[in-house]
Write a protein that binds this DNA or RNA. Sequence first.
RNA 1: GCCGCCGUGGCUCAGCUCGGUAGAGCGUCUGCCUGUUAAGCAGUUGGUCAUCGGUUCAAAUCCGAUCGGCGGCGCCA
Length: 433
Amino acid sequence: MGFIDVADVLAGGVSGEISVRGWINNSRSSGGIMFMLLRDGSGLLQCTVRREAVGEELYGRLEGLPLESALELSGTVREDGRAPGGWELSVSGAGAVYPAKLDYPLVRKEHGVEFLADNRHLYVRDPRLQNIFHIRAKFFEAARDWFREHGYTETQSPSFMTASVEGGSTLFNVEYFEREGVYLTQSWQLYAEAMISSLGKIYTIAPSFRAEPHRTRRHLSEFWHLEVEEPWTDLEGIMGTGDALVTHIAHTLADDIPEKIKRAGRDPAELLKLETPFPRISYDEAVEIVQGEGVEMFWGDDFGWQQEGPLTRKFDSPFWVVGFPSGIKPFYHMPDPDRAEVTMSGDLMAPEGYGEIIGGGQRVHDYDQLHQRVLDDGLDPENYSWYMDLRRWGTVPHSGFGLGIERVIMWMLGLEHIRDTIPFPRDMRRVYP
RNA sequence: GCCGCCGUGGCUCAGCUCGGUAGAGCGUCUGCCUGUUAAGCAGUUGGUCAUCGGUUCAAAUCCGAUCGGCGGCGCCA
């Protein structure tokens, strides 16, 4: 006889005699009746064990199992409003049992952040995290679906690289055999620009690494980066891609797994309200808004924490800020043909203070212009020679962006901290476990 | 890197201001309980107070250093 997933039982599509297997998430006994909350990969099911039904020997054995022991249980499925989830299993017998060797350190009680981080390898079992990880999986699925339906090809770039994309101070140095100057990737962008001449519209989903010593609730040193690059596309075109992609993901989460979204703390209706396209404001307008709220900001400054507040309060959906000054954007951003001091760039800002979720724009496709931009940024063109080579053979206008998956999940679910969006978060003080 | 806060039984914390060699709740364990929802009740177990050094008759408590952690900033996704 096969084993049934807890999720299928809770969905109400199962009846009669079945078997389930999982881990004891919690267990309570009151002498003659015992309630075991059994957790498998799909959810939590209350399993009710009666002394008179299973006999003295089995009842005693089950009662003595520590939390997080694993076992197989069989019995009858019953709808019951008293059980969490509305369904429960009346246990008639047990199969294989894998008892926990020690008492489980994560009791059903408050724990501090440090203790939970030290025990992350166990804490990932927590039903709240389990739920978020399921949503995360759906996020990846929805993104890939959207790309497939719209003719994009998924491809990969190397994680070891020799040139900086974003800025030298944020690079992780790697010991690479005998060689100096090898780093972990911050973005696939340079390689993506090579690949568009091979595959056309492309995307990747891969980790990126940033060595900046962040100490905030929305930064990781290793994050999952969803990046897109498209030939024959300008700034407005690539923002349209971002609009459609983010909206599709939000709607898919709300439509397909509304109960999981609700359990994570977000009303699915909020996600369904999102509409394409998101509002766009120019960098100049953004500066005026910030200044109008009495917060200090000069043209040419980047948005800091203090500037973001007044800005994000103006919108209840994500919004694009376009046309950032050249001085605060890397060399590969294309200058506005009508206004050289600003770039054809766009950042998508999440509402509610979650910050930037997409950064992107149109790239410089002209060789001489790129050469000049590299020099202006104080960089050595030698380090970018293969990248500049791309402008020699069939260069076309092209654009792309990078989306921080954990940031977006954090915003979509309304989470307090980015570490909850990924099973094993990495930040400047955490690489273990 | 900078600013602020914290480190006391397995966990969450109190005690520190006004020094006199430790206390609660939860967990563990034992017993009771046939509908619990972080179950309940009674009892039990468990700590050289992060580390090193200093002051003192005496340090969890005062001073210094070190290590570790948390929150925030600049920057970014």
